[in-house]
Design a protein around this nucleic acid. Structure first.
Lengths: 112, 112
DNA sequence: CGGTATCCAAAAGGATACTG
DNA sequence: CAGTATCCTTTTGGATACCG
């Protein structure tokens, strides 16, 4: 598999999309981000953030305090990706009526 | 899960992305599309095409001849989606250098 | 040719418990 | 608080065989 295809999979992955769009708004702490996204396990959020950090999309700022505090934000690269992903998400929202109509036509043609 | 999130997952799915980008060029027959994409099983290509057809992105034209001939093409809706997906794919290609640099820095910071 | 059906392997994902 | 580690379930994907 070509390497840039993998990056595309990271940013368009189930949780990657939601993380990028959320961080486009402002930086978030770990638990705060988890609550904002909703119904994501710690494991998947950790994994998604690590992948996006490794790809240079997300910046991780761990403050050496007790209790630990870690802030996540977008890099310049991440902001570019996030903006495109958000546009695609907004497009699907805007076109939802057409999609639902197409589905109904498709389903009705097959269950007479 | 909100419905438009599912549509987003369809168009950004592993094979969905490749199908949309390929069909942006011109219509394709089933086997022809399979060869063009490479290393996709019949099952996954069928499944992907059905999902995209149901969502109103892909048009399926089955000609009643022997041997069977089926042509797949993009609808207007599909062309809009495909263009955005292709742009995102082109962006990841363009930014690959930065991503690779970020990865190297990430990996080196963790294996001294 | 263009599928469908079945079975199986691999990967993704979640719940829980534990740690610095 | 922000993770790791472990275990288990669900989903995804591929190989194969068969059908119209």
């Amino acid at each position: 598999m070509c390497p840039h295809r993998l990056v595309l999979e990271h940013v368009t992955s189930r949780w990657g999309v939601l993380v990028l769009i959320q961080l486009l708004e402002r930086p978030y702490r770990f638990s705060e981000l988890r609550r904002a996204i909703g119904r994501v396990s710690e494991k998947m959020l950790t994994q998604t953030l690590q992948t996006l950090e490794r790809d240079g999309m997300v910046h991780r700022d761990a403050k050496p305090v007790i209790p630990p505090r870690v802030d996540y934000s977008l890099t310049d690269l991440g902001r570019e990706a996030a903006a495109q992903v958000r546009d695609l998400a907004l497009w699907t929202e805007k076109r939802m009526t057409e999609v639902l109509a197409a589905r109904q036509a498709y389903d009705e043609a097959r269950t007479p």
